[in-house]
Every structure is written in structure tokens, then in C-alpha cells.
């Protein structure tokens, strides 16, 4: 099918974007368009105006600011994938990015677009929730900062108001110490939508005990979820402990079933991937040897 008619504008600044959005309630932002364009083609979305932000200079770039890595929203996924800053300071995101889409969608798709679309199986959203990233929205003159966990409220649904423009995502920089990260995903073909995915980032102390652990699971429910991993902190992360934790964590998660994977399957797959991601992260941390190593597995 072909999209219904719309008007097209390409503002030069965030302020102009906000003006258009305020004046046109049916306007939609387009950045990479890798999710929106198919929705337009199938007429699942019928905006009156498309507001193209993909060339707004102030919305492009990756930088270190204080303890965070700031990714401006219209930064293309391919540029994030090749970013030295992300490689060094956001190893969990670096590990997840190769799973995002295919080469021809990463060349257009943006980091902010992936977050704004709120697909529950999207990898960038999962990493954002796992790491407690902050999502920054411009709405008229106002700026709003929302914790990733609070940003997603359902499949393709966020707290952002229709008049808001997502401007940046602030990811906390990796902690120092013996760090390891893990990212696991299952889908019908590599890079297709995940049936389930899991992310883990952890730090081991000098004795090999876990001093910090972040775990998230995606694709299983309506939104990517951060799990409470307190129970594993202070332990040496034995395989059996990790598996028990993963099964117990998934027991509380409300999973969804569809054509590809049943609720029960997602529960089992989620638990298996959580365990694999934590084990992968633990091995990565062990391989860094002494504390302070920056190599991650």
C-alpha cells in the first residue's frame, strides 16, 4: 500500500520542531523512518504533517558529559555502532547494537527513534532501562527528563506527549573496576524482532564477589523490564545461583503470547537468556583480571 497524503516540513532547530508540533496536533516526527514509514505505508499512522528531524545538527552526536554518555536523538544507529565513546564508556550498549536491525536499517534508523517507538523487543530500550538511562524531551519551552523505566508504558506507548520532541538519551558511564557485560537474544533470524532478550552488567570485587549487578529483560512483556538483582550481589555468582535467580525473576513477569512464541515459552526463554547474559558478563569480568581493567568480555 501507499501512504495517505501528508505535508512535509524540515525544520532547522528543536525550537522550530516544537512550534510545528504545538500548532499541529496530528503532526508526527520522522527521524530514520524505519518504523514509521511502514506504518504510513500500511496506513496504521496517518499524520497530517511529517516533521523531519534527521538533519538537525543539534540533534546529532555522541559525547561525554559529566558521568554520562549523551546520545543525541537523531544519531544514526550505524554511527553509534562505530562510536569509540560507546565502545569505551558504554560496553553494554556496544554489545547490544549489532543486534539492532539489519545493515540497511541501521544506516537510517536512529537511537532516539528506537526509544520513541517503544517496541518492547527493541535492544536500545532494553539497555536504557537496564542502565537507568535518562530520556530528555523538549516540549515548547520546557525540558523534561524521564527515567527510562518510567518512559515506556506499553507496546509502542510512552509517556511523551504528542507535542514533545525527544532530544537526547543520557546513559550513565560504565562503573570502574572489573566490569563485564552480557547481551543475549533469541529471534527467528538474527536481527529480526526478539522473542526474548536479556542484558546484564556487573562489577566483581578483588575477591571475585559481585559488588554491582544490573539485569534487564526485553521482548517478553509490554515493556522492557529492569529486574531487582539485589539477591545476587555479594555472591560469587555460581551458575546454579544465577539460574535460580533467573527462573524466580521471570516467575513474576507478565509475559505475552503471540503467533511466534507462547507466554510459557517467553517465560522459559527469558529465564534462560537472563542466566546466559549474567554468566557472559561474569566471564567477561573474570577475564579482565586485576581491578580497573577496561577490557570487557
Amino acid at each position: 500500500m501507499k501512504p495517505a497524503s501528508f505535508r512535509y516540513v524540515r525544520p532547522n532547530s528543536v525550537a522550530e520542531v516544537c512550534e510545528v508540533l504545538a500548532a499541529e496536533p496530528d503532526a508526527r516526527i520522522i527521524a530514520g523512518g524505519q518504523t514509521l514509514t511502514p506504518m504510513l505505508a500500511m496506513r496504521l499512522a496517518r499524520p497530517s504533517v511529517l516533521v523531519d528531524i534527521h538533519r538537525i545538527g543539534e540533534l546529532i552526536g555522541i559525547s561525554r558529559v559529566d558521568g554520562a554518555v549523551v546520545i543525541r536523538s537523531a544519531t544514526r544507529q550505524v554511527d553509534a555502532l562505530h562510536s569509540a565513546i560507546i565502545d569505551e564508556d558504554l560496553p553494554l550498549l556496544a554489545k547490544a547494537l549489532p543486534w539492532v536491525g539489519h545493515p540497511p536499517t541501521r544506516t537510517r534508523g536512529t537511537v532516539g527513534g528506537s526509544i520513541a517507538n517503544a517496541d518492547p523487543s527493541a535492544e536500545i530500550g532494553l539497555v536504557a532501562v537496564t542502565l537507568d538511562a535518562e530520556i530528555v524531551l523538549a516540549d515548547g519551552e520546557d525540558e523534561e527528563v524521564v527515567l527510562a523505566e518510567d518512559f515506556f508504558i506499553g507496546p509502542m506507548l510512552t509517556v511523551a506527549s504528542p507535542s514533545a520532541c525527544l532530544t537526547e538519551v543520557r546513559f550513565p558511564r560504565r562503573p570502574d573496576g572489573r566490569l563485564g557485560v552480557g547481551f543475549q537474544e533469541i529471534s527467528s533470524r538474527k536481527s529480526d524482532f526478539a522473542f526474548a532478550s536479556a542484558a546484564a552488567q556487573l562489577v566483581l570485587d578483588a575477591d571475585g564477589a559481585c559488588s554491582e549487578l544490573r539485569v534487564g529483560v526485553g521482548g517478553v512483556g509490554d515493556v522492557p523490564l529492569k529486574l531487582d538483582a539485589e539477591a545476587l550481589c555479594g555472591t560469587r555468582l555460581a551458575d546454579a545461583e544465577i539460574r535460580d535467580f533467573a527462573v524466580a525473576a521471570m516467575a513474576d513477569v507478565e509475559t505475552v503470547g503471540d503467533l511466534h512464541a507462547s507466554e510459557a515459552y517467553r517465560r522459559r526463554a527469558g529465564a534462560a537468556l537472563i542466566a546466559k547474559a549474567i554468566i557472559e558478563a561474569r566471564q567477561g569480568a573474570l577475564n579482565t583480571g586485576s581491578s580497573g581493567g577496561r577490557n570487557v568480555g
Binding site: Y8, G33, Q34, T37, P38, A41, L50, V78, P103, P104, T105, T107, R108
Partner: peptide, 9 residues
């Protein structure tokens, strides 16, 4: 860079 021309106006 490879791009899907049906996903761009």
C-alpha cells in the same frame, strides 16, 4: 551506505 528506498521519501 545501503538503504531501503521504500523506507525513505
Amino acid at each position: 551506505q545501503p538503504t531501503r528506498s521504500c523506507l525513505m521519501f
